[in-house]
Amino acid sequence: MMHERKLISLSHGAGGKEMGELLRELIISKVKMSGFEEGIGLEDMDDSSTIPLGDIHVTVTTDSYTVNPVFFPGGDIGKLAVTGTINDLAVMGARPLAIVDAMVVEEGFPMDDLKRIVSSMIHTAEGEGVALIGGDFKVMPRKSLDKIIITTSGIGIVSREALITDSGLRPGDKIIVTGTIGEHGATILALQSGIDVGGTSLRSDCASIVEAMKIALELGGVHAAKDPTRGGLAMALNEMARKSKVMIVLEEEKIPIRDEVRMYCEMLGIDPLYLACEGRAVIGASSEVADDIVQKLNKAGYKDATVIGEVRKGREGYVLLRTVVGGIRIVEPPTGELVPRIC
């Protein structure tokens, strides 16, 4: 077989195993200065990195948003570009302070759509008390990109002792999710496969989780947190189990999925555990406080927040699921792109 140059594929960007392997091989193994003193650095691959200063950590994160379509039930790329980034700060226990954003727009993109996106960004940031303190704006020739890409970087602060990572799970902890899963992923996939979402209740869960994290942290006892975006709950939990060197056992009956999202996944032959959430947190907390955290979240309006499983010693890095009929299966991290199947 003649030597062929290796090329980037869509699965390298799908948030699954291939992406992890690529980043480790391409960047992480090559960067020498990958952290600032004992702060969280590149190789941790956590939702944010941190710079320790005195008795606080400055948390920093960046994310680019390429969602297509740009407007969707439950949000738009502008709102997502703010919530996605401040959520990455919130799951570190940090209070988001400010964001800067860089926009690249395709020549010919309608001005009133751009206005709608920018006002949605401003409205969302101000609603969360986060300052928009800078940015960049570029236009590229028609067809050189698909409509618009927004990259948002965010800064937050957290005290040293209140810092939360995604690798702090301990055997005996409970796994909490703050709402129904797969809403964003299902909505976007439906729109991309030409299904008229109008007549349905499918809508993205795009929202800030800053308040939910604040409520969860008030009682103490939270050992780890992550926001399950690309790759869904399956990716987030596999990451947490691998980094914390623990095993997670989920109860399928307890995982909150709305019937419409479940039916949609069965129609296309896709597992909802792999669909992105854009307004949910996954929290690992000690068994003493877990139920109180859930009750406080429910009372504060997060009615679907619930315990979905627990952390155990045993095979490190594995996520198991007890199914509704009592069987056990392994929840693997996602691979390749999500495509509908017929068989």
Partner: peptide, 27 residues
């Protein structure tokens, strides 16, 4: 080998039907 999903017929016009998969409508 052949994923088949239950649905309810909610509209018929000629050889095309609109079915409801429990909230999701599709022709």
């Amino acid at each position: 080998m052949c994923l088949g999903v239950p649905a309810r017929v909610i509209k018929i016009n000629g050889d095309i039907a609109t079915v409801d998969y429990g909230g999701i409508m599709k022709d």
